[in-house]
Design a protein around this nucleic acid. Structure first.
Lengths: 109, 109
DNA sequence: AGTATATACCTTGACAGGTGAGGTATATCG
DNA sequence: CGATATACCTCACCTGTCAAGGTATATACT
């Protein structure tokens, strides 16, 4: 596992929830958005992404529905719930704190 | 597992190596130093710490020796190796990049 | 003498999350 | 007709964290 993969562990959920806060979306699009926004800094693996969807839905942070595309592959859309918004708020706060803490320990420069 | 524990996953090794770069040290002291420096922001669990020592020593990043204390509990001291220094350099670089990437994805402010 | 606290070490087993490798299906382009 | 892009999914494996358990020495108080 790479270092960036390890950091993912703590924040995949937050990254997904952040995307959904801008409106409903689906797996393939979120994957590309993450690559685009991070300018290649992070590639979310499919297995990681879909595992996270199951986990988040089970926890009531997101809900899902099938899109009604008339052509092309079918898409499953996800919606963030109120619980998900609250979780995201906490995760983002936590990230700010984590930055301060790790900067103290391994250096900010 | 808490979020801060998950972030640890990527950086315990770096945190330990950083401590050892300031001179040889031992488990109990590193544990207290991490608490002190992070101002309580991070508590390294003993099991995590000693697991990491085994892993780092196995990977040739650190070496160890028993202290010659004449009284009190015995201490096992750890020394960072050249390989460990190189790993630390990369991990610290990686942390700077990770901050930028996650700030893009879940917000900086 | 007993007990509580601080110092100091250690291992095991359970658990959770990331991911490689595999799979399915539709549409387009050369 | 094969390659590529879009789009979904699961399973088995690996790795790191950590609760829970253990050992031992020294000091301070009762």
């Amino acid at each position: 596992m790479t270092l960036s993969a390890d950091i993912l562990r703590g924040y995949t959920d937050a990254i997904i929830l952040m995307q959904l806060q801008n409106g409903d979306s689906y797996g393939y699009r979120i994957s590309r958005e993450v690559s685009r926004i991070s300018e290649g800094g992070l590639e979310m693996k499919e297995a990681t992404l879909y595992t996270a969807f199951r986990r988040l839905e089970g926890a009531g942070m997101i809900s899902s529905y099938w899109g009604d595309e008339m052509s092309g592959a079918r898409r499953r859309y996800y919606t963030i719930t109120e619980l998900g918004r609250e979780k995201l708020r906490l995760d983002r706060e936590n990230w700010q704190q984590t930055k301060l803490t790790l900067d103290k320990l391994i250096g900010g420069q």
